[in-house]
């Protein structure tokens, strides 16, 4: 609040052009560098996301709005982070859903 007041008293610039410029730059950089390092283009990311989602959704129902899927970096090592909030566990057998030739259902079941 006081910060806003000061900003009003001593306007730095018109509008919000500079606000969070540092954070913005850093976040965009982190993302683009993570992709550079992983040598993954956005198309590959998207198809990987779709395929993983497809496999996972045989067993659980994912909230597509809340899901997070990104490449990030940990000390010059790239990590794939998939955060898939589960709405509910599917009780029915995977065979009932439209499934692809990706996985054998038997192995998945036994590992459970």
């Amino acid at each position: 609040m006081i910060s806003e007041l000061i900003d009003k008293m001593f306007p730095r610039n018109k509008g919000n052009t500079y606000k969070n410029s540092r954070e913005q730059a850093k976040n965009r950089l982190k993302l683009v560098i993570a992709h550079d390092r992983a040598k993954l283009n956005p198309g590959m990311m998207e198809s990987m996301r779709r395929e993983i989602l497809e496999v996972v959704s045989h067993y659980v129902e994912i909230d597509p709005q809340e899901m997070e899927f990104s490449i990030s970096n940990d000390d010059r090592m790239s990590v794939l982070i998939a955060n898939l909030p589960i709405r509910r566990i599917k009780n029915s057998k995977p065979e009932t859903t439209t499934r692809s030739k990706l996985e054998k259902p038997e192995t998945q079941k036994t590992s459970k």
């Binding site: 500079y18 540092r22 730059a25 850093k26």
Partner: peptide, 18 residues
């Protein structure tokens, strides 16, 4: 510029490049 958070600073660069 760094002081007013208008651009990335040395710590940010080090955090990214390591």
């Amino acid at each position: 510029m760094v002081q007013l958070d208008r651009t990335i600073g040395v710590e940010d660069i080090l955090d990214i490049l390591r």
